[in-house]
Design a protein around this nucleic acid. Structure first.
Length: 429
RNA sequence: UCCCCGAUAGCUCAAUGGUAGAGCAACCGGCUGUUAACCGGUAGGUUGUAGGUUCGAAUCCUACUCGGGGAGCCA
């Protein structure tokens, strides 16, 4: 069946076309009906006048919300109609009549909608978010491809914890214990030694009982790792990636941002380079804002919000105390108390968007750190091999996709940034 | 794991110790340009579960269940 997408209707003014989709809404008076059809690319209004097409008119009267339909009609420009175009209906076919649809056009609560997430994603608002998410994913892939990074997928089932810190989902791997990956990072380092510059993009899993608007049990991470990149190169790469993503979304998904009510000027105002603040400077900033804070403590979510609200762009906090960061972080040669790592904090209180840094490339030091962190050395032998066979300075980072989407769309919860969120106490549907 | 909050019609909510109600959705009818259309009508309830206080509980108390927000941890 030849049909056209609603987004392309403007190219067919005056022609008779067929649109296939679902009945989004219907309004009627005695002699005229308006059928609003959605197909995932937009909405269009079909008009039926009783005296001109009495049989179609009666058929339309019985069509329920979300029934799948095929509508033939002549395309007209019509400013009164959603999307600016309208179909004068000349043919109408019901593919499948929907039962009474649970999601109405009135307000609903989060619990109700989350239980019906498989239907909720049909709504225009959720459609817009999913399109922006897709655009961000595509932009990241394009960015890395253009910058000579090779996509190297990392495993999802892993034999041991990557960093030995967070709680992992455990699996029975044919009688052995295995875990769902919390990060591809260690594997990425191996891949970077193979192809020089690599990135990976996949789901990651955290079993912590986190219950906030910034957390999911299953989330997607865009990770990159590059040989011969130092800490400064790494931050530069991160800000260029984020900037590229913003520009791409502004260019290609502006309508969706507008539909969501996003204040676009805040995204347009973002410029390179992003502000950089050392941990020590960040502590001073917090103190100047009246916060009680000791050097050596880790930042909590409220601290990150205070820091991010002091800047209009995402802000790097770099050179954290070694004690509060992962074992593989390279110490700063100029001040060994701190490591050459940075977190990128999103504006407007969205929290940490990227975590990354330069990795230890010295075998002896890495062995020492594994011991200090009481990690099972056998599990890391292959990782130590990377320092035995042609070790080089290298750096990498991981960008949390859902937090990035939440910030760009200015949503109040990450659960709307992913089609089927996995949250504490919620794995259905 | 801890702290706070919530659960009443299919949905969103009201009823603050005294006869459980409204709007929307559904169904029936009306309306020739609707924009979450509008107007009239019909139907719809073991007030999350269990117990307690009381002449009387949706309302007060206890426990439980489910969920929401936040902390910690993190992206």
């Amino acid at each position: 069946m030849q049909s056209i997408l609603i987004k392309h209707l403007g190219k067919h003014v005056g022609e008779e076309v067929t649109v296939q989709g679902w009945l989004y809404n219907k309004r009627s008076s005695g002699k005229i009906q308006f059928l609003i059809v959605r197909d995932g690319t937009g909405l269009v209004q079909g008009v039926l006048v009783k005296k001109e097409a009495p049989e179609l008119f009666d058929l339309a009267k019985g069509i329920t919300q979300e029934s799948s339909i095929r509508v033939k009609g002549i395309v007209r420009e019509e400013p009164r109609s959603v999307g600016g175009y309208e179909l004068t209906v000349t043919g109408l076919e019901v593919i499948s009549m929907a039962e009474e649809y649970p999601i109405s056009h009135k307000e609903h609560g989060v619990d109700f909608l989350m239980d019906r997430r498989h239907l909720w994603i049909r709504t225009p608002r959720q459609n817009a978010i999913l399109r922006i998410r897709a655009e961000i994913e595509q932009a990241a892939r394009d960015f890395f491809h253009q910058n000579d990074f090779t996509l190297v997928d990392s495993p999802i089932i892993t034999p041991a914890a990557c960093e030995g810190t967070t709680t992992l989902f455990e699996l029975d791997y044919h009688g052995e214990k295995a875990y769902l990956s919390q990060s591809g990072q260690l594997y990425n380092e191996a891949s970077a030694m193979a192809v020089g510059r690599m990135y990976c993009f996949g789901p990651t899993f955290r079993a912590e009982k986190s219950k906030t608007r910034r957390h999911l049990m299953e989330f997607w991470m865009i990770e990159a790792e590059a040989a011969f990149f130092d800490h400064e190169d790494n931050m530069k790469l991160q800000e260029e990636l984020v900037y590229f993503i913003i520009q791409r979304v502004l260019e290609r998904r502006r309508k969706d941002l507008e539909f969501l009510g996003r204040d676009i000027s805040k995204l347009e105002a973002i410029q390179l380079p992003f502000p950089r603040l050392s941990y020590t400077e960040a502590v001073e900033l917090l103190k100047s804002k009246g916060e009680e804070f000791e050097w050596g403590q880790d930042f909590g979510a409220p601290h990150e919000t205070i820091i991010s609200e002091s800047f209009d762009a995402p802000v790097f906090i770099h050179r954290f105390p070694a004690e509060i960061k992962a074992f593989y972080m390279k110490p700063d040669p100029e001040d060994p108390r701190v490591v050459l790592g940075a977190d990128l904090i999103a504006p407007e209180g969205y929290g940490e968007m990227i975590g990354g840094g330069q990795r230890i490339d010295d075998l002896k030091l890495l062995e020492q750190r594994i011991e200090e962190h009481k990690l099972p050395r056998e599990a890391f032998e292959w990782y130590l091999d990377l320092r035995r066979y042609g070790s080089v300075p290298h750096s990498g980072f991981g960008l949390g996709l859902e937090r990035t989407v939440a910030w760009i769309c200015k949503l109040d919860h990450v659960r709307e940034t992913i089609p089927f969120p996995r949250m504490l106490y919620r794995v259905y549907p």
